[in-house]
Nucleic acid binder design. Structure first.
Lengths: 99, 99
DNA sequence: GATGAATATAAAAATATTATAATACCTATG
DNA sequence: CATAGGTATTATAATATTTTTATATTCATC
């Protein structure tokens, strides 16, 4: 990677590096959700969710389609789900996390 | 992942989400380096590198062995190198990045 | 066109991150 | 033991992120 790529890659990672945003990715791995479903499932405010979704969309991690008054969110790039496997192992193997 | 795991996972991702720290991981993928080699190769100050290495070590992404007056850095967990493949594709496929 | 449900935006305070500069801390060697 | 090379720490200013609260927008329905 060249400098410029690392800057952008860092922004993408930063977009994932937040408990709620990680939660959104995890939930959406299971399939499409509305904004309301997301903030209920992840137990945060509507405003919070809206702002976090914006960040995820900007990095093209999540995409949104509109249907009437609701918005349906889904993963743009399922490749990054691999990351959760790495992370799971890392938590157990390197940071002392119990199962 | 439960809440607590997402908090920690977010910290690990945050540790990667920085141009220099990404650079360190990339360079170390190729093999061990001293601190001096790292900051010369990545073109930043010694102090900057020392601080960034600390963050990487805290999350057990990098480990350091001492040899006399120098410190040798290496990757603790090569699993995360998969991330670079995903990222490379993501940059090209989703963010309009030329090759 | 008023209402209500779903979502977005703005503002602001609290906190965290980043980057730089200055200084301190080893440790090997003369 | 003074020095110099390699690395760490501290302090600080600038900037960015996080979270909450309040308000705005949009759209379907009555």
């Amino acid at each position: 990677m060249v400098q410029e790529e690392r800057n952008i890659a860092a922004d993408v990672l930063k977009a994932m590096a937040h408990p709620i945003r990680l939660g959104v990715i995890e939930v959406l791995a299971d399939g499409e959700r509305t904004v309301t479903e997301l903030y209920e499932e992840l137990d945060c405010s509507q405003s919070m969710m809206s702002q976090q979704l914006k960040i995820l969309c900007q990095q093209k991690l999540v995409s949104i389609r509109k249907d009437g008054t609701q918005k349906y969110c889904s993963l743009s790039n399922r490749d990054f789900l691999k990351l959760f496997d790495c992370m799971h192992l890392h938590l157990r193997k390197f940071l002392n996390f119990r199962d």
